[in-house]
């Protein structure tokens, strides 16, 4: 259970960054931290003690870890890259318009 709790603590560090930071770049990095923690938690959940990676090497394989969360997390990591690129593009555009990364100063949401 200790590893689960530590992984959740990593998620909460990211949540703290989203809640308390005013810098938009820090907020992007916090969302990235939350993504790391979510992916890692799924893989921790599928780990089987004493098992090997799910690749068949010989005729008589031993116990192997769960391949399903690995496949879905593989998908999730790639989507995370697209999301990060989209967030970075939004922030670059906001910087061009307002000249600051401070969310307390970006208030005029008119065209």
């Amino acid at each position: 259970m200790t590893v689960y709790l530590l992984c959740f603590a990593l998620f909460l560090v990211g949540l703290y960054g989203v809640l308390a930071k005013r810098d938009l770049i820090k907020i992007i990095l916090s969302i990235g931290i939350m993504g790391y923690a979510a992916n890692l938690f799924l893989i921790l959940f599928g780990y089987k003690r004493g098992a090997t990676f799910p690749i068949l090497t010989g005729a008589n394989p031993g116990p192997m870890v769960d391949p399903l969360p690995q496949a879905l997390v593989l998908t999730s990591i790639v989507i995370e890259l697209g999301t990060t690129a989209l967030l970075v593009a939004l922030v670059v555009r906001l910087f061009q318009k307002y000249g600051t990364f401070d969310i307390a100063k970006i208030r005029r949401l008119r065209g």
Binding site: M1, Y4, F45, G46, Y47, R49, P54, M64, P67
Partner: peptide, 19 residues
């Protein structure tokens, strides 16, 4: 987190078929 299955013993209902 106490309700979850302990670390190292996954459920693996569906994935056992994949393996």
């Amino acid at each position: 987190f106490k309700l979850l299955p302990p670390f190292g013993e996954p459920l693996m209902n569906v994935s056992q078929h994949y393996l």
